[in-house]
């Protein structure tokens, strides 16, 4: 397992936000965590990234405990809902930021960054500053900046929630493609059932600070409590109706 989280607990004052949370993510796999706003998803991701200290429990990366390790030494990247690009740097420099910190030779840095720009279809925007980009372009740049340093785990906190449906769909596709290509394990947090099913190899459901994980997507879909089956049946029946309507019109 790349990431193993055991018995994580966290309180803010009197409020218990996380309670005995446990999960694991295998290599090249994506775990989708579905849950309503305020259920503790963001706190969980921030604990894994080292931005918040847990009250109890452990976080392990490739078996080694990192619970008390500083953020910059974890090689775990947390992607916010907003792209949060560095406003004083161009798209190229934003993507190359992590590589510059690692003091890569200039040729290698330019080669890798240019390749990433091509993957993201951002070559034409390399010299632009963040304020000159659209929402989707900003999000793609943020992806590139995170993935180029080959993090052990990528944590995504509803990264597509502010995008329009079309851009959102293309970003979902792009993320799956990049995660496969760069072999990145990820934890994808969302409140959208469809997105959780689409993005995750396995799925977890979070409610009031407690996480229930399912070994496979199918197990989650078949579970009667989470409404996934109903949702799929609703969309299937709608599709069937549309097909019948088209068929009748053709006849």
């Amino acid at each position: 397992m790349v990431l193993t989280v055991q018995e994580i607990g966290k309180c803010f004052g009197q409020q218990m936000v996380l309670q005995g949370v446990a999960l694991s993510v295998a290599e090249r796999q994506t775990l989708s965590v579905l849950g309503r706003s305020g259920c503790g998803k963001t706190t969980l991701l921030k604990i894994i990234a080292g931005l918040i200290a847990p009250d109890s429990g452990t976080v392990r990366l490739h078996g080694a405990e990192i619970t008390k390790k500083p953020t910059e030494q974890r090689n775990v990247v947390y992607l916010y809902q907003e792209p949060l690009l560095f406003p004083h740097l161009t798209v190229f420099e934003n993507i190359a930021f992590g590589l510059r910190l690692r003091r890569l030779p200039n040729n290698d840095l330019t080669h890798r960054t240019t390749r990433m720009l091509e993957h993201l279809e951002l070559q034409a925007h390399a010299k632009k500053f963040p304020h000159q980009l659209s929402g989707g372009q900003k999000q793609r740049t943020a992806f590139g900046r995170a993935i180029i340093i080959a993090p052990d785990v990528l944590l995504l906190d509803e990264p597509f929630s502010s995008l329009d449906p079309e851009t959102r769909a293309s970003m979902q596709h792009l993320f799956k493609q990049l995660a496969q290509e760069y072999g990145i394990a990820s934890l994808f947090v969302t409140h959208d059932l469809k997105e959780a099913i689409l993005m995750g190899d396995s799925i977890g459901y979070m409610e009031a600070g407690k996480l229930t994980t399912f070994a496979s997507r199918q197990e989650f879909i078949n579970h009667p409590d989470y409404g996934a089956r109903n949702e799929i049946e609703f969309w299937s029946s709608l599709r069937q109706q549309a097909t019948n309507h088209d068929h009748a019109a053709t006849v």
Partner: peptide, 8 residues
């Protein structure tokens, strides 16, 4: 935080 996560 974003800079620190990238290794700064």
């Amino acid at each position: 935080e974003a800079a620190r996560m990238l290794g700064a």
